[in-house]
Design a protein around this nucleic acid. Structure first.
Lengths: 193, 193
DNA sequence: GAATATCTTGAATGTTCATTCAAGAAACGG
DNA sequence: CCGTTTCTTGAATGAACATTCAAGATATTC
């Protein structure tokens, strides 16, 4: 008996970064061996192939993002305050590093559309899960009386998700902090109006 | 002397479609020869290389989209009516065919981010141009008195552009007509509120 | 500490791809 | 209708790529 030497989470996070940098297609196995520190054989042993590594990385991404989401909404603050902080954090992601690196899910979704049904299904499920999380948060704010219940929480969540997608794409062409912050504020205002 | 046999516009539109279908990277020269009907040698003679064909296709795309834009806003209707029709048309694009095929500019932008500076610049300029077109339309509506001048036309245009980006990405996971129409209506309402 | 099981290594493999180029075809000018 | 120029053709080229695998290394077990 003998255990694998590498740290699976670290490897997957490196792979995530590599895929976000160049996209799945343009990330070569050589890039991945460099990023992860693993040799081809090890990658193929642990993840079957490049696609398997992507799928495992997507899973890790989901885990990491879920934990982050919980962090933002587990405080004792008003829900809308937490939501605003969450949105601001997304804006910061778009500003600080490269916008392209912002989200593995949407990046892969754009690339894989109509090409790999299984991967697309995984991504779609993850995004649906995220949207539901936001809908739950909004519903909580409505139950609290922080937010009017006039508009359906699911509709509001969809609109916010759409806005976040748009914000990320917008950041590709206009990475200026001021512009993005303004857009995010308007988005938040329209949701909470 | 002898003239080229192929129709440049037709070739570029075929290339556009091919690039939108699979993305630039995954579109092989073989795909392009099949799509355009041109042999490799002819493509290299006319456009230098695959990248040159993309750039030429982007130029054609800009031309085609500009003409379409003019069409939508050259009627005698109220500007806001025209704008709503324009937005509805974008929603229809997202529904009817595959959402991935919706926009060469954003598709290529997502793929090329941080990889090909020249191409990114071309795309960014085209998108900025489009945004300015929308800002002009909005300013016209404000001058008309159709729309309050309280909010800056550029800000409104940015917000609308962001929403359209988001709508297209959203359509990748939820191509249902009802959902997209609802989102577009809310977006329009928030702009014109 | 020997035997065994498992993991690691990285060169080899075969495929796919963008690109080239020399030969052939077709239009034009005289 | 011949010579020249330009365009077309598609097989050939070499590079890059994902993947494999046999040899080597290392931990665990008895």
């Amino acid at each position: 008996m003998r255990n694998a030497e590498f740290d699976r989470e670290k490897v997957l996070r490196s792979a995530m970064t590599a895929f976000m940098d160049k996209g799945y297609g343009k990330t070569s196995m050589q890039d991945l061996t460099k990023a992860t520190g693993l040799h081809p054989g090890s990658i193929y042993c642990a993840f079957d192939n490049k696609r398997g590594l992507l799928i495992a990385a997507l899973e890790q991404y989901k885990t990491d993002r879920s934990a982050e989401f919980q962090q933002f909404f587990s405080g004792n603050h008003a829900v809308l305050v937490e939501l605003k902080a969450y949105l601001d954090n997304i804006v910061q992601e778009c500003i600080s590093c490269e916008a392209a690196k912002a989200c593995l899910l949407t990046k892969a979704l754009n690339e894989m559309a109509q090409q790999d049904e299984d991967v697309q299904k995984i991504i779609t499920e993850n995004l649906a899960n995220w949207q539901q999380g936001i809908a739950d948060v909004i519903a909580k704010a409505q139950a609290n009386g922080e937010l009017s219940s006039e508009r359906d929480s699911l509709h509001l969540a969809r609109y916010l998700v759409m806005g976040i997608y748009g914000l990320r794409t917008f950041a590709h062409t206009h990475p200026e902090a001021e512009t993005l912050q303004q857009l995010a504020e308007q988005l938040f205002a329209d949701i909470t109006a």
